[in-house]
Design a protein around this nucleic acid. Structure first.
Lengths: 152, 152
DNA sequence: GCTATTTCCATGTATCTACAAATGATGTAG
DNA sequence: CTACATCATTTGTAGATACATGGAAATAGC
């Protein structure tokens, strides 16, 4: 009647972790879905991440960077850097706010707006294709619940 | 009876995209959940991503890198690079397979195994805390469904 | 007004992610 | 046995992500 081997316990614990960990599963899902959409939308020349960012900007009315980052659920520093890629591509513009020189205002350029517009039908098609394999309510509910975790 | 302004359409389309896009929502959820877990597990000195990787390795029996990457749902190049961080930290070992010098075998070091073991109770606590705010079945089902998208 | 604090954004640093191409080892046709 | 295809992994390149920190502008106290 010796004690069970530690390593065997570790292995089964690890297996449970892999199967059940919300973080692992959420990231795995995000990777797979992003890869799928990136491939479906490859002809647009934009990644699904960039499209999402542009949509965030297009959907906003007059927000500055901090507010946008928060709504996007991104670290302000991450948001800032991601925007630079879009700005370098000529899809958005970033400018100082007259009234408060700390702030930055962001908007789509004409080019950016056209690109986003052109991408929407492709996105709809891809999203529909996706919906055949998984319930779209799933990621939506998950995102909604997850956002509550990081209210600071 | 003029045609509606294009930009207005774009704004509402963008709003729908932000709310409904499975890719955006999945990534948003993954970010929030990972941030939450990283903070809960900060004292372990490991990120939830690293913990997940180590669990994958511990759960496997005798796989080499390609197979592991596939099960982890990661690009093999991504997997390879992520492992290097763990190897540099002395948590895993990577070695050539005798029989086929193209392949690499991977396992936890003694240190790595102890670290993972020590982290499991913390992870359980964090996961339980998480479960109070969202159904753990949600990410699990999503991951399962999403993996089907990228079978090649 | 003038200093101290706060606010907003950018940068330094490090990891995660993926696609394309390169490298190196093994298998195979002739 | 040699050239060629195939396979497993790494490297090149580029973007995404976050924490800690830095720097400039605005606000609060006095």
């Amino acid at each position: 009647m010796t004690a069970p081997k530690k390593r065997k316990t570790l292995r089964s614990d690890a297996k449970a972790m892999v199967e059940e960990c919300a973080g692992w599963n959420a990231r795995l899902a995000a990777r797979c879905i992003s890869q799928f959409l990136d491939r479906e939308l490859a002809q647009s020349g934009l990644s699904i991440g960039q499209i999402g960012l542009m949509a965030q900007i297009a959907a906003a009315t007059d927000d500055t960077m901090g507010a946008l980052a928060k709504r996007a659920g991104l670290e302000q520093s991450t948001f800032s850097r991601n925007l630079r890629v879009l700005a370098a591509a000529g899809l958005i513009e970033i400018a100082l706010v007259e009234a408060d020189q700390r702030r930055r205002a962001v908007w789509l350029t004409e080019t950016g707006a056209r690109r986003l517009e052109a991408t929407i039908p492709l996105w709809r098609k891809a999203q529909a294709k996706l919906a055949k394999q998984l319930s779209l309510a799933l990621p939506r509910r998950l995102a909604q619940a997850a956002q509550a975790l990081v209210v600071e």
